[in-house]
Amino acid sequence: MLSQDTLKKIDHEVAKYPADQKQSAVMAALAHAQDEKGWLAQETIACVAEYLGMAPMAAYEVASFYNMYDLAPVGKHKLTVCTNLPCALSGGVHVADYLKQKLGIDFNETTPDGMFTLKEGECMGVCGDAPVLLMNNKRMCSYMTPEAIDKLLDELKS
């Protein structure tokens, strides 16, 4: 079910832990699986669990505990805006409002063309770069003025 490439990445993670502690790699493995599939369906989670020799339920517990796993389909580009207080003092909420208006969606919604999902995020540990947004869990966008957002959206649409 998972590609060879993903399995190779998971092997790299498994190698970090004692031989009898493969389960330690589950967080990284689920993240890699999510990268490949776009989101984590029950079958995908079960697949990861089997590969690591753990109960599917144990892997599901992890997938549902941590915020950055998507247990339902999301748009091609998931944009998570930090609106926590330090960011809000430098425009985090304004940026979120700007994105809502530009994309025509609210938090936790996806545009009808399936291109964008908007999420509200908690502190990402980069408050000095506010306003910030995180793209598809991995790409940190700093100092996101409306002009910078316009540019980013154009780039993503093209």
């Binding site: 809000a88 003092l89 430098s90 425009g91 909420v93 304004h94 940026v95 000095g128 770069d129 506010a130 306003p131 793209m135 790409r139 940190m140 966008c141 700093s142 100092y143 996101m144 003025t145 409306p146 002009e147 910078a148 540019k151 980013l152």
Partner: peptide, 15 residues
């Protein structure tokens, strides 16, 4: 007004 978008001087958006 107080919570307006503000970027540290000399910093450019990066993505």
């Amino acid at each position: 007004e107080g919570s307006n978008i503000y970027v540290t001087p000399n910093r450019v958006p990066s993505c």
